[in-house]
Nucleic acid binder design. Structure first.
Lengths: 139, 139
DNA sequence: ATTAGTGCAAACGTTTTGCAACTAG
DNA sequence: CTAGTTGCAAAACGTTTGCACTAAT
């Protein structure tokens, strides 16, 4: 958290109360929030922050790799890329809650297979969809 | 193609010129088109078709599983689910072209791992991002 | 004749932008 | 001081909706 702020300062970004609040809010969710949800969270402490500030900070943080932007049918959600450890997600199709799963199947075989087609792989996305324990019970 | 139309008729859907044109258009792309691109293609033969008709047909076809809706940063793209054979995609981050890759890493291990967390997997999404042969050359 | 499908226009929700005022460094 | 940042308002964008009209069965 302070680490991130230091990282920003080093790159010439200023540390504003809004920016602090966005990072803090990102940290406070147990699932991946939307921009709107982040706004609501941020406004608990900084009532005057506007939605565009949320978006501007998110896209800046995403560019720096500090945040991951994940696309969902009804808008994006944002994940604080803690400790940079690689994982994938279980996404509940009913409530949208997201859990992490620590398996990644990507090996060099894929890169080789892609290279055969002249395609250079730079990244990947791997997600599972289904029902979380909560939604499964409620049926 | 005629097969799909028959399938629709059986379920009580009507076969309109617009619907025919949408399916034909879907078939004519070598990459996965957006709704706008489909509209342009459809209008080559049916100039008066409107964008909402494209959307309405796409969501109907998606519900029936005839079409796959794939989420991209700047809107959805649509894939005609030919022959139902399972595959994944290489997506060019520069031009958006999409190629298929015939490897799927999903095994029961994932379902088991997810079940440990009380999560029931019903589907997954696996995509690679990078540069296609075309965009790689142009640098 | 009946019901599904269409085009139009307007609405919607998310995200982006231009701008003048502000503030952290 | 001054470059980066903010809030506001308005726009952009993809997508959805209500409605009266049309067309496939």
């Amino acid at each position: 958290m302070e680490k991130i702020l230091e990282q920003l300062r080093l790159k010439g970004y200023k540390v504003t109360p809004q920016r602090r609040a966005v990072l803090q809010a990102l940290n406070s969710f147990e699932y991946f929030p939307t921009a709107q949800e982040l706004l609501a969270e941020v406004r608990k402490t900084n009532p005057d922050v506007s939605l565009d500030t949320i978006y501007r900070n998110l896209s800046m943080l995403t560019e720096l790799g500090i945040v991951h932007e994940i696309h969902r049918t009804s808008g994006n959600v944002y994940e604080l890329a803690k400790d940079g450890h690689h994982h994938h997600h279980l996404v509940c199709t009913k409530c949208g809650r997201t859990e992490c799963i620590d398996i990644c199947p990507v090996t060099d075989i894929y890169k080789e297979e892609a290279e055969k087609k002249g395609f250079t792989i730079t990244g990947h996305m791997f997600e599972f969809y289904g029902l979380c324990s909560n939604c499964r019970e409620k049926k």
